Amino acid sequence: MMTQNRRLIGIVLTVVGILLIPLIAMQFTEEVDWNLIDFMVMGTLLLGTGLLAELVIRKVRNRDYRIGIIALILVALLLIWAELAVGIFGSPFAGS
């Protein structure tokens, strides 16, 4: 039980740490221009990915399935992130 709680704390701290990168970068350059919505969307995306991976770790007992499912979750995260960032698919979500 304690390991699971530590993993959850680790997930939240990792999300905060990742979100600090653009926040700090915004202080030094005009190239990074995030608003509150950007932070909320990315925070939700990262936290959701972390919590979904945690759910898979807790519920899926077969190691190979666990690795495969988490890999798919990470691929989905990267595709959504790329779409939101540069619109690789040209969906309405990217502002295309």
Rank of each mutant, 00 (worst) to 15 (best):
E30N: 14
A53R: 00
Y65D: 06
I24Q: 10
V32S: 02
A25Q: 15
A76D: 07
L77S: 01
L79D: 08
I70L: 00
I73G: 00
I70G: 00
N62L: 10
Q27E: 12
L52F: 11
A53N: 07
L79N: 06
Y65M: 04
Q27K: 13
L72V: 11
A85K: 14
E31T: 13
G87A: 13
T44Q: 07
L19E: 11
L46E: 05
I21H: 07
I67R: 01
L84H: 09
S91T: 15
W34P: 05
Q27P: 09
V16H: 02
I18Y: 09
V56T: 08
R58A: 14
L72M: 09
P22A: 11
I80M: 08
V41M: 09
G68Y: 00
I73D: 00
L36N: 13
L36D: 15
V60Q: 03
S91C: 14
L45V: 14
G10F: 03
S96K: 15
L52R: 01
L46P: 01
V56I: 15
M42T: 14
V16D: 02
L20I: 10
R63P: 06
D64Y: 07
R63N: 10
A85L: 11
I67D: 02
A94E: 07
L51C: 06
I57M: 13
I57A: 09
I67Q: 00
L52D: 08
T49V: 10
A94R: 02
A82Q: 12
I69Y: 00
A25P: 08
G68T: 11
G87W: 01
I37M: 12
E83T: 12
I11S: 01
G10H: 04
L8T: 05
V56Y: 01
F28I: 12
L23D: 05
V32L: 04
G48A: 08
Q4P: 01
D33R: 10
G43K: 01
L23E: 05
I11L: 08
F89D: 07
L74G: 08
M2F: 06
M40K: 12
V56D: 04
A94M: 07
Q4T: 13
V32R: 05
I69W: 00
I21M: 10
L23T: 11
I73Y: 02
W34A: 05
I11Y: 00
A94S: 15
F39A: 08
R6F: 07
L36W: 14
V15D: 01
T3H: 03
I21E: 09
L47N: 06
Y65E: 03
N35C: 08
E54C: 04
V16Q: 05
L23S: 11
E54H: 11
V16R: 02
R7M: 10
A25H: 09
R61C: 01
W34R: 12
G87Y: 01
Q4I: 03
I80A: 05
I57W: 10
T44E: 03
G95K: 03
L78M: 12
L20F: 11
L84V: 06
G10V: 09
S96W: 15
I67W: 00
L84P: 00
L8K: 06
